[in-house]
């Protein structure tokens, strides 16, 4: 096996250190064993593993051992190969626990649905020798939306007046993409600001990671909508505004004292949603969209379209 990899490396990747050549895998069940220098054989092509992908959240690196950053030896292209990992876990949202699953079949199905639609990551799925579903994904060069927003060095008012209108327009496009999935009976499953990838060259917003699903058939799209609401509140606020971050940002106790529980998120009850209370230049119309995600609301959006019907007109009044 090692000789086979060495031969491939000599032919396609001569700069690769021979001593790190590993095995060829046609059965990817034991994905923990597949590491740097190993080669995954998929549909007649050879994907050399360079490293496990890592998710960075809250300053912590979380390795995803079932997701491999690879080099397609035959072409030299970088690819991401996602292997089967039937994870099941309880996700805590506020006081509610929701049973979540990873579903490779769901992700493969959505990849088929969105082929050629650059609002989404692109890729193809294959079965390995023992019918594990592997997804081979194109790499998107760029960074996540939260890093993009954090990287804008402007005070809030300047950000809101100068940078935000473009961000909102792109966010509306990204929301339409989620609406497209819903119209086909699919949900994204993990709508978060770090699952929108901003492509470096084009600055297009592209959704990644569709393999989450959850036992939520009574209200199947509610979590996606909640995720969009969270992202909207984040891009309007430029950060997550909590009592803690507001103190750091220089808001006084009096400012914070004027806020009531109804001003905060219906699920994350430490996160301020009624941002107009601290940034009075936020138009009421835009603020009202965000208030649908607040504890004080009795009316919620049922569909992405309902939210967008309220949000699109906000583009016209920004900058007034």
């Amino acid at each position: 096996m090692a000789q086979e990899v060495r031969d491939l490396v000599k032919r396609y990747y001569p700069d690769f250190p021979i001593r790190h050549c590993g095995k060829i895998y046609r059965d990817t069940t034991e994905f923990m064993n597949i590491s740097y220098g190993d080669v995954i054989f998929i549909d007649g092509l050879h994907y050399m593993v360079l490293r496990d992908e890592v998710e960075r959240r809250f300053g912590i690196e979380d390795p995803k051992y079932w997701v491999k950053r690879c080099r397609l030896l035959e072409t030299g292209e970088r690819k991401i190969v996602k292997l089967v990992f039937y994870e099941e876990f309880q996700m805590k949202l506020g006081h509610t626990e929701i049973l979540c699953h990873r579903s490779p079949q769901k992700e493969a199905r959505i990849l088929d649905l969105v082929r050629g639609d650059m609002r989404f990551m692109q890729g193809v799925s294959f079965q390995d020798d023992v019918d594990n579903n592997m997804r081979v994904l194109d790499l998107i060069r760029g960074r996540s939306l939260d890093h993009e927003v954090y990287g804008i060095e402007q005070d809030h008012e300047t950000y809101f007046r100068e940078s935000f209108p473009v961000i909102l327009e792109k966010f509306i496009g990204a929301s339409e993409a989620i609406g497209f999935l819903h119209s086909h009976g699919e949900k994204h499953g993990d709508v978060r600001r770090d699952h929108i990838w901003v492509e470096s060259k084009t600055k297009k917003y592209r959704w990644i990671d569709f393999d989450y699903t959850y036992d939520f058939y009574q209200n199947p799209f509610a979590l996606d909508l909640f995720g969009l609401g969270n992202i909207l509140v984040f891009i309007v606020g430029k950060v997550d505004c909590t009592v803690g971050t507001m103190s750091e940002m220089g808001f006084t106790k009096d400012d914070i004292g004027k806020l009531s529980p109804d001003d905060f998120s219906i699920i994350f009850q430490h996160r301020l949603v009624n941002l107009r209370k601290i940034y009075p230049y936020i138009p009421e119309k835009l603020n009202n969209v965000m208030l649908h995600f607040s504890l004080g609301s009795d009316v919620y959006y049922d569909t992405v379209d309902e939210m967008l019907d309220d949000l699109r007109p906000c583009l016209d009044i920004l900058g007034d």
């Binding site: 009574q218 209200n219 979590l223 699920i267 504890l295 919620y300």
Partner: peptide, 15 residues
């Protein structure tokens, strides 16, 4: 149910 649960799971009766 609480508002949080109603938001997440939906409420047929409310609608």
């Amino acid at each position: 149910v609480s508002k949080e649960v109603e938001f997440l799971f939906g409420s047929v009766s409310t609608k």
